[in-house]
Amino acid sequence: MSGNLQHYPPNPAYGTGVYRRRITFTRRANGIDVALLDDYHDMGVTLIVDGQVITDAAARMDRFPKTSCPGAIAALRTLIGRPATALALSAEDRGGQCTHLVELARLGLSRLVRNEGSGIVEIALADRDGMGEQRLALHQDGKPALAWVLRDETLVEPAEHRGQGLFGGFIRWVHASFPAEEADLWRMAQMAVFVARGRAYVVDSHSPRRVAEEPSRFGACFSYSGASFETAFDNTGYVRDFSGGLPPMRHAAPEPANQGA
């Protein structure tokens, strides 16, 4: 999720709800579990680290947009053997990977580098109002950590960053402007805005579209790359509306293969 979605029918309920996303970090003695739950995804990543090297990587996908998405679970294992630093996961990894699994891995490694413990980030983003504005609230471990007002995906508040767009160089600006922990929160908030674009459309109808109907997105992620581009379809009925609140946490982490790592 998401991209140019205008080939989907409009969602008649858009403007009345809230997109919600939860990212959960659970430290292990030798790694970290990172889980994602939102309107379109229910998935998680486990990374095992020995010294400064990723020795194992596992993932689960319980809810996802495209029929081909689970193939990215095996693709994630290409991270094994790479340096256990956040910088090891650059944007170039995303073409053959699930964007969300890779971002969860990057966020988890960033947390490991800072030697931080377990934690929870929850994001709520209201649908655009009649003026094209949206309000975003990010809580970290139950406490307010970010509050944005957006107009057409450009910051209105915080006032000191008014006019800063969320795309086209935003990530570079974030990492140049904030310390690592705060930069990660801004990254999580930006991804929430990107994914929440889907709320304006009916993307999981009983008439699934082929991935190949969006040629401009070729190479964007696992399902838009390689053989998947020609064979993948939308899943049907996968969207959940969490406007009223996210459900309780319940999922176990994916089990890595190398238990002794």
Rank of each mutant, 00 (worst) to 15 (best):
E230V: 09
S68E: 14
G95N: 09
A253T: 06
R21A: 05
P10E: 11
A200D: 04
L5Q: 10
A252V: 04
V49P: 05
G51Q: 09
V203R: 08
C98Q: 06
R187A: 05
Y224T: 05
H175Y: 14
A84S: 07
I120K: 14
R63V: 04
Q140G: 09
A74D: 15
R94W: 02
I23F: 01
V113K: 10
A126I: 07
G237L: 11
P215G: 05
R20T: 03
H100C: 01
D141Y: 04
I171E: 11
Q6I: 11
G15A: 13
V203F: 02
R28Y: 01
G44Q: 05
E214N: 06
L166W: 02
A145P: 00
F170G: 03
A159G: 00
R28E: 03
H175Q: 13
Q6E: 15
R63I: 06
A35M: 13
R82V: 02
G96Q: 12
L155W: 01
G71W: 12
P10K: 11
V202E: 12
G96R: 15
S216R: 11
R135H: 11
P247H: 04
V202I: 15
A57Y: 07
V174M: 07
Q190G: 03
S2D: 12
A137G: 07
Q259W: 10
A91E: 12
W173T: 08
P10I: 14
H7I: 15
L87R: 12
K143D: 07
Q190Y: 01
A57G: 03
A180G: 05
G165Y: 02
K66G: 02
R60V: 08
L150A: 06
Y19H: 15
R197E: 14
V211C: 08
F242E: 06
H100S: 01
A86R: 15
T55V: 15
Q52L: 09
L136M: 13
L76P: 00
Y14E: 07
V149S: 09
G81W: 14
D141R: 06
R135I: 13
I120G: 03
R210N: 07
T236Y: 00
R187G: 00
G237C: 12
D39M: 09
R135G: 05
R210F: 03
S223P: 03
L125K: 02
F218H: 14
A86K: 10
E182F: 00
